[in-house]
C-alpha cells in the first residue's frame, strides 16, 4: 500500500515546505521529517515528507542494475558523481509544460 513519491524540497518555513516533483510544486509538511532542508529529496506521502531519500544508496542500486543491464541497454544512470542533489540526470526544464 501507500503511494509515496520522491520530491525535492524547494523551501521550508517551520514545519511547512514547498516541494517539487517534475515541475509541479505543492505544499507539504515536514513535521515527520524535521531534519529535512532545502535541496533534500524526500518521499512524500499524503502531503507529508516521511523519509529522506539516500542518494548514495540510490546510486548503488542503480550501479547494481547497470551491471545487470545487457550491453547497449543501460539503465538511466548517466555519468559519474552528481554534484547538485539529484542523481546527475538532466532535468527537463518546467518550461516544457508551456
Amino acid at each position: 500500500m501507500c503511494l509515496a513519491v520522491p520530491a525535492k524540497i524547494i523551501e521550508t518555513d517551520g514545519q511547512q515546505a514547498i516541494v517539487e516533483i517534475g515541475g509541479l510544486r505543492k505544499q507539504a509538511s515536514i513535521v515527520l521529517l524535521p531534519e529535512a532542508v532545502t535541496g533534500d529529496y524526500v518521499l512524500l506521502h499524503a502531503g507529508f515528507a516521511i523519509s529522506m531519500i539516500d542518494k548514495k544508496e540510490a546510486l548503488e542500486t542503480l550501479l547494481l542494475f547497470e551491471e545487470l543491464a545487457p550491453p547497449g541497454g543501460r539503465p538511466g544512470l548517466s555519468g559519474p558523481g552528481p554534484e547538485d542533489g539529484d542523481l546527475g540526470l538532466k532535468e527537463t526544464p518546467a518550461a516544457d509544460d508551456e
Binding site: 513519491v5 520522491p6 525535492k8 516533483i21 517534475g22 515541475g23 529529496y41 531519500i53 540510490a58 542500486t61 542503480l62 542494475f65 547497470e66 545487470l68 543491464a69 545487457p70 541497454g73 543501460r74 539503465p75 538511466g76 544512470l77 548517466s78 539529484d86 542523481l87 540526470l89 538532466k90 532535468e91 527537463t92
Partner: peptide, 20 residues
C-alpha cells in the same frame, strides 16, 4: 524516456529487467 522525475525514472529503465 526522459528522466525527469528524479529518483523514479532512473529506476524505470527496462534494461536490467530481462537479466533479473
Amino acid at each position: 524516456n526522459l528522466p525527469v522525475l528524479s529518483y523514479l525514472d532512473e529506476f524505470r529503465a527496462s534494461g536490467p529487467a530481462g537479466r533479473l
